[in-house]
Structures are given as structure tokens and as C-alpha cells.
Nucleic acid binder design. Sequence first.
RNA 1: GCGCCCGUAGCUCAGUGGAUAGAGCGUCAGGUUGCGGACCUGAAGGUCGUGGGUUCGAGUCCCGCCGGGCGCGCCA
Length: 554
Amino acid sequence: MRDAIRLGLAEAATVGALPAAAGELGGAVEVERPGNPEHGDLATNLALRLARPLRMAPPQIGAALAAGLNALADRDPAFPILRAAVAGPGFVNLVVRDAALERRTMAALERPADWGRTPAGPSPRHVNVEFVSANPTGPLTVGNARGAFVGDLLARVLEAGGQRVTREYYFNDSGTQVRNLGASVLAIRHHQPLPEDGYHGDYVADLAGALPGDLAGVAGLSDAGREEREWAVGRWASERIRAGIEASLAVLGVHFDAWTTEGSLHAEGWVEQAIERLRAGGHLYDQDGALWFRSTALGDDKDRVLIRANGQPTYFAADVGYLVQKFSRGFDHLIFVWGADHHGTVARVRNAAAAMGYDKAAVEMILTGWVRFVRDGVEISMSKRAGTFITLDELLGDLGADAARWYFASRGANVNMDVDIELARRQSSENPVYYVQYAHARIASILRKAADSGLTRARSVSGLLAGPEEGRLARVVVRFPEVVEDAATAQETHAITTYATELATAFHAFYRDARVVDPAEPERSAGRLALVEAARITLANALGLLGISAPESM
RNA sequence: GCGCCCGUAGCUCAGUGGAUAGAGCGUCAGGUUGCGGACCUGAAGGUCGUGGGUUCGAGUCCCGCCGGGCGCGCCA
């Protein structure tokens, strides 16, 4: 459609209605759907956009563009636009030819698996999306959940947009918190008091119960032996928790392609390599016995320590090593899904990437907004260490994965929100996701009914869309690929949920006005069955893109 | 104090500088002797936090202020 408008612009330039330069300016054609149906199927504000560069009044440009489009429509019966007209301050309203709608509807029916997906192209961008990355010292909480939803939805929408995605989970398997966890498990196992800053949750007791005897040892070890044992138990517990996290995420439909540990970045020399790169570029200096990165030279508020005076690398050093590790794996673009509290680290990591010679624009952080869980208007404070938290498993048990996914998919990643647990439980049945799923189930039911009546789907929808009810539904169905493409560009999913709701509404209205299964009218039924199947495929793909099921009945 | 994010209908949220600011939920009033009533039709409800500025045009961009959140470690 955008191409068609560019052709119209070129046509106007060719016949001299617009300056010759106009033909070159169609790059950023914007097509939108008018709020008012009387304005046609589509509208473009191109004439308003071109007013400045062309130094002409928008209505004048619009009239020329409309004339160009109409000339093409008259000349070429296959031109997707039937007619164009300028209106208001310079909008060009477009009516789409039925044949063009029918072609796109057929595309959904002929290749349902591809419908809505942007073709990948010969060398798709390969994106690394790192998310969740909670350290395995306790089960995933609802606090971690935001990142899980946002990251997975982002990965899915990028894939649908034709990009290659690797989902990655980063965690620390060697920090003092691991030893602390081990000490906590051992303390409970041996009925001793928990260490200061120990972990208190029920899951720690569960781990203590499950701890194999040879690891548990005997109580009252000497201090030297105790430390070693705490580390060993910590590593055991940590891996067990990590596996539990993996299982929780699997229930959500979230799977990772790579699990990377902070320890491996040091052990495999990535941190060292990063430091050498920075040193070679003159970005490092020694002060007070520590090794610093001159981040201020690139606009940060302060310089950052990479190696402490005691010789230990900082967490930031691992981040920098991780950049080298990821880029050396061949990714074109790195996305980090972080909680909003990490915004202070964005600048330094991106600066380090630039200092090492990578493209700063290829390192992107998406900061998720805060989710405050409240009960009766009072925030529920959560602490993993104190053992007071709501787990992701509990949330899913209450809401179900589909409702939870929809909830997060329909909101921007960076907005803060309050979730009232009780309200969410009560309202889960009001979740719009069921409205959309219901439309899908209703169509599935119709298709079953049709099969029982011996009716079959038409092989072509040619001529079908002349019916006003059919036309209205088809006009929504055919928008799907552009909705997906735009969502992938924006890296947001709420356009998908909004669209899916609109399509469900359009179908429900169609259902009211047009009987599909009618043995007395087999031919008309066949055509409508094809259209309704196209709508079903679209609903299923929209839901599938969000990781939500499309039930045949409910 | 400095920096970043947020402020849109009663609630939860959409809204690439463009036409009359939208949706769901909630509220109110209606609708089915037909393929699934988890549905449909309609109504009420808005100083887009606030004051300036840029622009032919601002919820959107810029500046100030108010309110909320988060950061500002040789922690992770």
C-alpha cells in the first residue's frame, strides 16, 4: 500500500502537478486508518508532511497526489487503490479495491503459518535478548516476572518481524550469596540458628530436607571445613533452584537458548580480553591501587572501577567482558531487559561498548517499569532474603499463564503499575484475553458445525467482499501483517493485543449480522466459511505471537 | 542536590507532530423462538498534573514548577 502511494506521488510529479523532486520524497509514507469510516479505508498524511519541503499548501499537494492515484487506478485494474480524495487539512483518503483485499485474505488461507510474519530475508539481524537473569538464590518472584514477560514477548515480536533471536539468561554462580545460601541450608539441616543475612524462605527448609547426606556432613565442623562445605552446598542448592526457575518459566512458555554465568566470563578470559581492548584504546588509568575506566570522557557522570585495589574485578568488569563475549558470538544487536533500578548502569555499559570499538547503537537497554503489588491499597513488601514474597508460580496459579501474558503484553514495558492481587484474582475472568479466545472458539465451533452439515470452504474468496458484512471483517483481517511489522519496529506488543481485540469485535459483529452455516445457501456459506477461517487463523496467529493459547472450545 | 522514568475517563492502560483524544473493566439503559449470551447496541464519564514556549497544527517536541517512583558504591 505504501508502494502504491509512492507510485501515485511519482505519477503526480511526472504529469507536472508537483515538482519533480516530489517523486523522491515518498520515503516515509505514513498510512493510517481514519477514525471515521466515512473517510475511507485508509488515509495518508503525506501531503501535510511534504508541505514544508515542497513549499506548497497541503491541500494543493493532496489534490495532486489524489489525482495521481486516481489516474493509476483508472489505468490499471490491478492497482490496489480504487479511488483517492483529498479532505480536511490535506489528508488523502483512500478506498481499497476489493480485489486487493481478496488477494491478502487468500494469503492467510494459503499459508497460515506465515500469515503475519515478516519474511526473514537472506541475512536477518541476529539479536541477543537477555532477560530475567535473577540469581538463583530463591524461586522466581512476581517481581522477576515483569522481565520474563517483557523479554519473551519482545523476543517473539522480533522473530515475527523477521529477525533471529537468542534468548539468554545471565546469572552469578560464584558470589558470596551462594555460600550464604549454602550456610543457610546447612544451618536448617543441622537445627542451628541461621547466619546473619541468611535466607529464610520455606524453600530453604525444603532444600535442607532434600540435601543428600554426603553433602550435609555432620554438624559442628571446624571453621576451615565448614567454609568449603558451605560453598559445596551453596552450589548444589543454587543449581537446584536454577532448575526450578527453568521449570517455572517453562510453565509460562518461556525457554532460554543460553544460560551464561558470571564465573565463565572470568574463567574463559573474556573480562581480561575486554580490559586489554580498553587499555589499547587508552580508556584506562590506575588510581588508588584500582583500575578505572574513563567513562566520563564519553559523557557518564563518573569514572568506573574495573579492578578493585584488592585485585578483585567488579561486577561492571564482568559486564564489559560479557559485551566482548556476546559480540564475538556474532550478534548484530544486544538487548538487555533490566529493572528500572538498573538505569544508572546503562551509560557506563554502552560507553564501554563504544570505547571497545563496538557500535553503541547496537547495545540497547530496555528498562521495565516497577510492578507494585498491593493488597487493600497497601504495598506488599517483598524480600527474597527474608522469605516474604509472592512467587511467579503462585501468580500463575491464580491468573493462569494466558491471562498473565495478556496483562503484560497490553502494557508498555516501561510503565509503572500497581497490581491489586485480590482484584486481579476477581477480575481474571474479565480479562479481555477471554474475549479474544472466545471469538476463536466460536469460529472453531462454526467450522465444526459446517463440517457436520457437509458444507465446505470455498477455494477462492473472489467477489465475496462485495457484501458489506464480509467487507468489514476482511478489512480488519488484512491489516494483521502491518500490525505485526509495526510492533516489531516499535519493539512493543500492545498494538497486537489492541488489534486482536478489534478483530474479535469485528468477528462478533459479523456473527451477529451474517449467518455462516446455512445449508439452504451452500455457495454463500462456502465463501463465508473461507472468510471466517481467515479470521480464525489471524486470531490464532495473533495469540500465538503473544504465547497465548487459541482454544477450539472453552 | 544531581540524573533517569512516570503523570491521559471512577479503575487499569493505549495514543509513530495531524481530522471529533481511544480501549477494556466498572456504572446506567436496551437486545436473542437462528451457527456458543464468556455475545451484541447505545449512553454517561476528560482543564491529557500545571504554567510558559516552538509550530500552520502539541497529549506528543523544548523549558520551569507540582506529585509519584528509581538511581547517584572499589555492592551485586
